[in-house]
Design a binder for these strands. Sequence first.
DNA 1: AATATTATTTAGAATAGTTCTTGATAAAAA
DNA 2: TTTTTATCAAGAACTATTCTAAATAATATT
Lengths: 149, 149
Amino acid sequence: MPVHKKKLSEKIDLGGGHRMTPQRQVVYDVLMSSRDHPTATEVFIRVQEKMSSISLATVYNCLDTLAVAGIVKQVNVDREPSRYCGNLAPHAHFHCETCATVMDIDLKDGVEPSGSVKLPRGAKIQKVEVAVRGQCPECVRTNKRKNIS
Amino acid sequence: MPVHKKKLSEKIDLGGGHRMTPQRQVVYDVLMSSRDHPTATEVFIRVQEKMSSISLATVYNCLDTLAVAGIVKQVNVDREPSRYCGNLAPHAHFHCETCATVMDIDLKDGVEPSGSVKLPRGAKIQKVEVAVRGQCPECVRTNKRKNIS
DNA sequence: AATATTATTTAGAATAGTTCTTGATAAAAA
DNA sequence: TTTTTATCAAGAACTATTCTAAATAATATT
């Protein structure tokens, strides 16, 4: 019995001979409709609602393929599970230590994130990441205690 | 037979009822005499030269205790193994994707690292991390290719 | 269309860094 | 000294992720 039935409405080129498969499309759709930054497992759970036969390994594969193709971003906060994000515009991340969510923060116009550091002379810079840790406005307001021991 | 013989020259208070034990002291000494950013396993190897009976689990315990006490820093680059650093002054990190080393970079005087981002209003900021990825001067000079597939 | 080639999916095994468990040991407090 | 608390060590356990291998599907070629 065939597992795949869905027709693709629009084909996005992933480059390198990679195909936009139904699984990759569903994973991509889930990410594009997420404002939070789900982990692979969270993506898996959301994807399962649309395609119950998909496996976690495939979700990992798809996320990796999409990230390598450059159409989604992999976001790492310390050594916690990787999170994925469909926002391709340059931005930084805020990590709330109380509710453990990750949210985007915009960069100020005209200010280079690398401007605050003395870059080693002769180095080739590929990317500069700015990550802020603390307590998000929501958690400050409700005065929650940290849920991380 | 007793495992611990070394007398402590100077007792550093770790707070919270924690003791500066011979193992913790050796781990601390190794870190303070390292200019690179060794992983737990690398610290373990260096520590073994001074105290051959120590276990990897103890090195992990010591590193954690020292980090919680705030006298060393734990440095995370993406989801790679944690690295440890005795430099307590505020600074950023440069990660070379060719030789995989992590080096400190100084902050520019009078420039706040958080100055490049629009911090969420109402949030409580705990720390701002700036990480730069690229190729270090040494690797640029010798024109090495990436060693990461 | 039929065949050959290549890419993809899947389940489960394997991996690696780290944490946890347990009993023994040692230091500090009483 | 006795009691309490902290620490150490070995190995088991855990977890996020990657790998393996076989089945399947899509694309290219004939």
